[in-house]
């Protein structure tokens, strides 16, 4: 099956290792993975912060870029929910405002549409697109029909479902079914799992006190599990909770679901013999705090120097990529 990867702007810029893990995983499961180079952002930040005009422009761009694919897979429950829940609304609003939709989108759409004959409307594009866009775990369980993806990750893991995965996409137990099949992985339940971590995009900046209080409670619950790794299907939430765990020197690292599912026996054992927890707990003492290069998102030590998860395709070198390799 030919699959388009929607990496998301956040993963593209800050967490490329997650993208590489998705590529590894999908190829291992027999998919042909394409990365449409024209993709940028789903527009969620703009729409949710109150800038629908800019958001709609990005949504139209997204719809154009991914129009030709059978399936679009993204390692972000939040961005998948954006497409599924908000694109139809944006399309309705655009349609109600008449064509061209609004001053911002009109130029853009008009420019792109100029060469075509009878271009599909934004609403038509969205209607065709929505059923094809999947969060990673949805794609694995519902489309590919697998729960055992051949991963091995011998660590104690707790899973935070994230709001948009849980209540937006209604992923249910799909992610945990996938994790339960990972060899060596011990899944421990997270108390208050369904509660928001307080990220909420620009909410974290607009209401910092409440956001920090929510995050502190979430971090507290994560620490209470005794897990070595906090896993989620969204790096934004992980960045948030991981940021608090890191600040508190909790010794718990955060990993995207894709990175755990991409890990295999050979890679993992070779890469992280001591186990992530052992390594990260010593990290604060051994790293010079002042050097930015020594900083890491919540002590990411566990992944391999060669990549976020063992089994990723050949890597250019340990120091060059991702959020791993740089912390030491």
């Amino acid at each position: 099956m030919r699959v388009a990867l929607f990496i998301t702007c956040v993963n593209d810029t800050l967490f490329p290792g997650t993208g590489r893990a998705v590529v590894t995983l999908l190829r291992r499961l027999g998919c042909e993975v394409d990365f449409p180079r024209a993709q940028t952002c789903c527009g969620q930040m703009h729409v949710n912060t109150g800038y629908p005009r800019e958001g709609t422009r990005l949504a139209r761009h997204f719809a154009d870029v991914f129009a030709g694919y059978d399936a679009v897979v993204t390692p972000s429950g939040s961005c998948a929910a954006m497409v599924r829940e908000q694109y139809p609304r944006l399309a309705r609003t655009a349609a109600a405002a008449g064509r061209p939709a609004s001053s911002g989108t009109a130029r853009d759409a008009g420019g792109r549409a100029a060469g075509r004959t009878a271009p599909p409307s934004f609403a038509e594009e969205v209607a065709a697109l929505v059923p094809k866009v999947h969060d990673l775990s949805e794609f694995l369980v519902d489309v590919l029909g697998v729960t055992d993806v051949g991963a091995c990750f011998p660590h104690r893991v707790t899973y935070h479902p994230t709001c948009h995965s849980l209540r937006g996409l209604r992923l249910g137990d799909r992610p945990t079914r996938l994790l339960e099949q990972v060899r060596g992985l011990e899944l421990v339940p997270l108390p208050g799992a369904e509660e928001c971590c307080g990220f909420g995009g620009t909410f974290a900046v607009k209401n910092p006190a409440v956001s920090a209080a929510m995050c502190a409670d979430k971090a507290h619950n994560v620490m209470a599990t005794g897990a070595e790794v906090l896993c989620a299907a969204d790096n934004s939430c992980l960045m948030h909770i991981g940021g608090a765990l890191g600040r508190q020197r909790a010794g718990i690292r955060v990993m995207h679901l894709a990175e755990i599912l991409a890990a295999t026996e050979s890679g993992e054992t070779a890469a992280a013999p001591a186990g992530p927890a052992a390594r990260t707990r010593t990290a604060p003492a051994t790293r010079p705090l002042s050097a930015p290069a020594a900083r890491t998102l919540a002590a990411p030590g566990g992944a391999t120097p060669a990549g976020p998860a063992a089994g990723t395709p050949p890597e250019p070198g340990p120091a060059a990529h991702g959020r791993t390799g740089e912390e030491r």
Partner: peptide, 24 residues
């Protein structure tokens, strides 16, 4: 004030994809 910020990677995903031809 209360959270670390993530490291910015040296290479974005799209640059990695271009340089390695999708990791191949």
């Amino acid at each position: 004030d209360t959270r670390d910020i993530p490291d910015i990677p040296a290479e974005s995903f799209r640059d990695w994809w271009d340089r390695t031809d999708g990791g191949t």
